[in-house]
Computed example of a mutant assay.
Amino acid sequence: MNYIETNITDVFIVEPKVFGDDRGYFFESFNQKAFEKHVGKIDFIQDNESKSTKGVLRGLHFQKPPYTQSKLLRCIEGEILDVVVDLRQDSTTYKQSLSIVLSGENKKQIFVPKGFAHGFLVLSETATIAYKVDQYYAPDYDSGMAWNDEEINVDWGINADEIQLSEKDKGLKPLSETENPF
């Protein structure tokens, strides 16, 4: 696997080595030893999977302490625009975002450390996303910020009227109006 540093400290893009032939393909999607060598010790405790349709935007979410989460995310089928926003107030990249297309075809993954808001937009007709987390979901500590926060200014590459949001995500506020525990 190739671990690629990004312009935001502690966020990594992970590119697997894919071995393919006329029968199909094989790749190692996770290796604890290699992960620790490049990223550090993270104890993933749960694997999650979701499937969504085109235009669904999930995010931008985070969990507050003491239930903060790190994630290792990939798109198994379809294509998504994955977005992270640095919420670490002492970071030199505070309030900066990073966007990457993840797909079943490119097989890239993104590591999102604690202290970040995370979300994704489905670009294909459907997309299946799988991700590892190092903390269980804690509904009382669930939080997030508005996907269209003007100060953060994420370019989702889609018209707002094409986006499908959950009721919860419709109620999220800009970061300036959100408790940021990081």
Rank of each mutant, 00 (worst) to 15 (best):
H61C: 09
K64F: 01
I110D: 00
P65S: 12
V101T: 14
P113C: 06
E151Q: 13
Q96H: 14
F111L: 03
G115Q: 04
A127V: 08
S99A: 14
E105S: 11
I110V: 10
F35H: 13
Q46F: 11
F62E: 06
G119P: 04
N48H: 07
D142A: 12
S50D: 06
D142M: 06
L60W: 04
N148G: 07
L57T: 09
I152P: 03
D155F: 03
Q46W: 12
L123W: 02
D82K: 07
D134H: 09
Y137C: 13
G119D: 04
I163N: 08
E79Y: 01
Q164I: 15
K173Y: 08
S99F: 09
V133P: 02
E150C: 08
Y131T: 00
Q32K: 15
R74K: 10
E77T: 13
K107Y: 08
F62T: 06
T93P: 04
T53S: 13
F120C: 01
L172Q: 11
S143W: 00
S52K: 06
V84D: 00
K71H: 01
E150N: 12
E79P: 02
G115Y: 05
F35T: 08
Q135K: 06
E150V: 10
E49P: 05
I100F: 01
E167K: 13
V122A: 07
V122I: 11
I158W: 08
K170V: 10
V101H: 12
E162M: 12
K170I: 08
V39D: 05
E151H: 14
Y136C: 04
I110P: 00
R58A: 10
M145N: 03
E150I: 09
V101A: 11
E77N: 10
F120P: 00
A160L: 14
K107C: 14
S176I: 11
E36Q: 15
V83S: 05
S70E: 02
V84T: 00
T126P: 05
G119H: 02
K33W: 08
I129M: 10
Q164D: 13
P113N: 02
G78T: 11
D155K: 10
L72C: 04
F44C: 05
T92N: 14
Q69V: 06
M145S: 08
E167R: 10
I76K: 09
V39H: 05
Q164E: 15
D47K: 03
K173S: 11
P65L: 02
V112G: 06
Q69K: 07
E105V: 15
V122H: 09
I45K: 11
L73H: 00
A117F: 04
I76P: 01
K107W: 10
L102T: 00
K64T: 06
T53G: 11
Y136F: 15
G157Q: 05
Y94G: 08
A34Q: 15
F44W: 07
Q89E: 15
I42G: 06
G59S: 12
